[in-house]
Design a protein around this nucleic acid. Structure first.
Lengths: 239, 239
DNA sequence: CCTAATGGTGACAAATATTGACACCATTAA
DNA sequence: TTAATGGTGTCAATATTTGTCACCATTAGG
């Protein structure tokens, strides 16, 4: 039996039985007492909280609070979860948001370091404010997740972004801009970008952007964005 | 060098260089050509999409979309992430919320089945509505995550919940109620409960509840909650 | 106090898994 | 045709994991 499988079996058994002795577990997974002890030690290293009671009537007990689960997430998914929780925190305090943060911190820790750096750099471009009550929310539609990679690249490598934009009147234009920031006015998201053709900043509602693509040969520098309203950088929000 | 570390190193190298040959990787991680090939095969089994091109000028290429990360999360953390994304979706469509959903689905799949059942049952108690603009949001504070277990038990095992409640005027009372639903009026959360002492339903703002504990010997049955405003069960929200 | 049942550690040989060397095949571009 | 590449099979060398055994610490019960 594989080490991994044996660990799983031990956790399952502890979850099922409440309390087990090393001898029980050894018999159940078909390994020696010593090996089970080594496995328990490894599981503790992995974060499982296993209480042990020596002496007659003693045994091992798995703290149910510590039962953990592993999931393989793509970077895009982690990214989406991260900004979900970030924007939720932006919208105001919520029950359990600390726990969600803790979960995300763990996920983040498991990411390759360069990806974490990327995510942080992207978060630095996120700003939050209060939505003016004048905006018509009724025609909102979600942004296609498939668009994410182009945005990520445009922001992280500072490449100009080309996309199709449908304005409030339904007119469709093709734009090429320098993405400077993302502005969250819950529940709407805006891309704040410098439009070189118009030599000014423009706000674009994310749900009205389609077919975005970054332009490899069009790098640019970050500009200071003159936000009209009061906004907060997301990284400055209280945790 | 450890197998795990070597796999990580290979993935990092592929991510950094774009294209590498087996020989390059072997030199870089200090292993033989054969071993690297075995590693590549293992990584593919784990879900990494690695394109390969034989022949002159060929090499290996890692599909960046497939880079994955594993994280061990406690059940409470998964729970917090789940309701975060659920309430975010409730607040309106957001970019990437589909991706966040997909990530959560994977996490959920990795949970033990009985926990998933519990989560679903809890989600059935969640309702969403529009917050009246009359509520004063300025004095909000987040709920302590340590309170979660008592709530979970009270909801799932239908035990009465005892807690301390501080009302809008600051007066503190001790309550014992039957938790029937959770109502999300972003960014506020309410516990909707039947108060046996008053023989009526009451709404309690979650951030004003402290020291909750479930009462083991006080089971009850679910009641039909007569919501005053228009609310939507969270499980009926469009995905 | 003694004993039996329990968790826990160290040492070392046996069992098992991983690795490297080598031969070889398939594909591709020059 | 050749050289550079990915890919597979085999087998001995090497590294890791496992079991055995001896022993210690703690606890409950007689």
């Amino acid at each position: 039996m594989n080490v991994r499988l044996r660990h799983d079996a031990i956790v399952r058994s502890l979850r099922r039985n409440g309390t087990s002795t090393i001898a029980d577990l050894a018999a159940e997974v078909g390994a020696s007492r010593r090996t089970v002890l080594r496995d328990i030690s490894a599981l503790r290293d992995e974060g499982f909280v296993i209480h042990s009671e020596p002496g007659r009537g003693g045994g091992l007990q798995l703290d149910p609070q510590s039962v953990q689960t592993t999931a393989r997430l793509s970077v895009a998914e982690v990214f989406a979860l991260l900004i979900s929780v970030a924007s939720m925190r932006a919208a105001g305090s919520l029950p359990f948001s600390d726990l969600a943060d803790a979960g995300l911190a763990k996920i983040e820790k498991a990411l390759p370091p360069d990806k974490v750096r990327d995510l942080r750099r992207f978060l630095d471009c996120l700003y939050v404010g209060q939505l003016s009550p004048l905006v018509d929310i009724s025609d909102m539609s979600a942004m296609d997740p498939a668009l994410l990679p182009a945005f990520e690249t445009a922001f992280l490598q500072r490449r100009q972004l080309r996309f199709q934009y449908r304005d409030a009147k339904g007119a469709v234009t093709r734009r090429m801009v320098e993405p400077q920031a993302m502005l969250i006015l819950p529940p709407l998201w805006y891309l704040v970008a410098w439009d070189p053709a118009r030599e000014d900043f423009r706000h674009f509602r994310m749900d009205r952007i389609s077919r975005p693509e970054y332009v490899q040969d069009a790098p640019f520098r970050r500009r200071h964005v003159p936000f009209k309203d009061e906004v907060t950088p997301i990284r400055d929000l209280p945790r």
